[in-house]
Design a protein around this nucleic acid. Structure first.
Lengths: 214, 214, 214, 214
DNA sequence: TATGAATGAGTGTTCATTCAT
DNA sequence: AATGAATGAACACTCATTCAT
């Protein structure tokens, strides 16, 4: 009969438990993919009971979906926070390239989660409603920068913003997700600071030459 | 109607069995990754006994390694067969971009296998000796094209051939491996013929603008 | 009709399950050795799930080690309970011989478990810490009886207590463990009551003549 | 078309193959027991084809039976070769004890094979006809020595020759078969030369005191 | 809200044995 | 006489999930 400290008993700790489960799951899914992830490990790492996972998330797959949604919401939110509208178009574009690269570097789970989801043909993302909302704002970002750049004379006209978006992601994402096989095939350490800096420069140049007015 | 050499049927059928297992394994590993692949399924699909798999390949992981090696050898061999040295540098580079794109399209397993291997930090590729040999010839290809292009005045100097190589792969690979989540995020069908053609054009333009002399 | 303490049923049943598994495992390991024992059989006989065995004991080998440790602790405890210090040395020694014989007879699993462990070069016993503790008290028992017997003039001096210990065990153990081949080689039923009684008498005489003062 | 060296082509090599299989099987069965032995290992070690094993011995169990029979015939033959009838009874008995001890030491497989057979309740030995024949001569040996010793006044009357036989075996066999657990329980190395010599002396003394005239 | 105990269907792997030549 | 290829049944062990409290 001891009085619990808050007015809504359990609520706060319930949220905390969910958060701990999500955090643990993100690590485990990122490390081993959906199939390779172990519910026991998630339970242990989150210091939550295994039963709690099923209580809050119903199944391993739904938990994966939540983790994935969170990951997408997080990157999309961070992109919006860049507030690129206030920058001149060239700076805005370069900022976006840098941001994308650095986000992948700091959040390598994002890449692995997306890979895993694509192995499963995006069946979880398909069910998600949150994703569509956050994606739309994201897709229009590059379009707006391009438009502004064309008007200012910095960029040439006729560049498809979707293709550009994909390419900006691709040149960073591919380098990082395939860094292990890449290091072997190319006989270089992909992850030393110099290599990373060099790659970022190369990527910026790639995009700039692609869009700049002739 | 050529007569197949049937003098050593025992020997032959052993090789045939191994080939069937490898083919079945490639499909299964590509579809589900190393962890998600099922040995039973490989056995069934190859019309070989499960015991045979272990007889010839010792373990699921060694089988995966063989499949992976085969995949790399195959793409590297096909690249060499392009015989790009005989083409003018601009044509050679465009040929390589087209080839890479089309190879990925026709051999989607390659992409999934590489993804799976990277999830496992390239532990199987590390053990492989074949890979290093075939990789070296591949890496030098783009370097030679670039050199020729600089001499002919078509390409600017100072482009790192390794970074270029990575970028050529990236812009095709990323589009295809992430086509499921991509279709959702960008609200487009990534795989209709028009979209594919458009992407290839975009990629060629990206690379050409990147390397062309100013 | 005593009331069993049912206050912690969850805890209790966990212990009970472990005990059932251990009991079933002892039977199975005794019947078939470590290699021949089947985990499924242990699961079924213990009315526990196979998964529970791995939950509580991690592996078949660790389960074997537990069973073996239990067996050693059990015999060593029973020996201590004989309280031979209070008996005159001749009686004490005879009691020990009888006890050893009867223990083997009543607990034939002990013999088979020890045989199995020796086939594996005692690799499990080596890891065990419990064993060393209980063994030391046991080894000193016979030494004390011998000392008392020498002082009382019943036993001759100079008998190595370890060798005596081994011999007491040997003459009972060998007869019982090899009863099957023995019955064939010697053309006798080793296990009829008369034969058993006769063997015990013979063993007592063997040891008594070995130690008695000249 | 080279001429094979003997008149009965294959016959000689057939016997040789069987012998190699038997030798390899003895090692494998001794090391791992009947259940733990691997037919593949026997095939490899004997440099015979696995199919040959089944050709000559029908099954793993029949092969085990042959190995076991061979082992028994071997020890029984060696015992007969001692020719103890020509020695004075005390010397004859000591010779037998020494022989038994040394045979076990030099042929440790014998012990493991017998253990394995007893684990299977002597089901293979039961089927064997050879065994009964060789056993009878063996059993009568000790009886004759005892009789001669009683007549010569060296041994007391009334010692059961079968019990004596069993005891002579027991005190050597037990020490050696349980040397691994024994070394741990008694905290001694059972197999150093000194320990072995000491044990043999102790065993001779045990038997001599058991049978000597009062 | 929280938890330890329990489970059935499956996973990679192994084995003695037989087939086909 | 000899052999390499092939197999089906079994094995130790694992997993996501549910039960009972």
């Amino acid at each position: 009969m001891t009085v619990k400290s808050t007015s809504k008993p359990g609520t706060r700790s319930a949220e905390a438990t969910q958060a701990r489960i999500l955090a643990a799951a993100k690590i485990e899914f990122a490390k081993n993919g959906l199939g390779g992830a172990r519910v026991d490990v998630i339970a242990e790492r989150s210091k939550a009971n295994k039963r709690m996972i099923y209580h809050y998330f119903n199944s391993k797959e739904e938990l994966f979906q939540c983790v994935l949604e969170d990951a997408y919401v997080d990157i999309r939110t961070a992109e919006q926070d860049l507030d690129l509208n206030h920058l001149p178009p060239v700076d805005a574009l370069e900022s976006l390239i840098r941001f994308t690269w650095e986000y992948y570097l700091k959040n390598p789970e994002f890449i692995t989660l997306v890979n895993s989801e694509n192995l499963h043909k995006a069946k979880h993302l398909k069910k998600s409603r949150v994703i569509r909302a956050v994606s739309q704002r994201f897709v229009s970002m590059v379009g707006e920068i391009l438009d502004r750049g064309v008007k200012s004379g910095d960029f040439r006209a006729g560049v498809d913003p979707v293709q550009l978006n994909i390419t900006i992601a691709a040149i960073g994402y591919y380098y990082l997700t395939n860094r292990f096989t890449g290091s072997i095939v190319f006989g270089r350490d992909f992850m030393v600071a110099e290599a990373l800096a060099e790659r970022l420069d190369f990527n910026i140049e790639t995009i700039m030459r692609l869009v700049q007015a002739d």
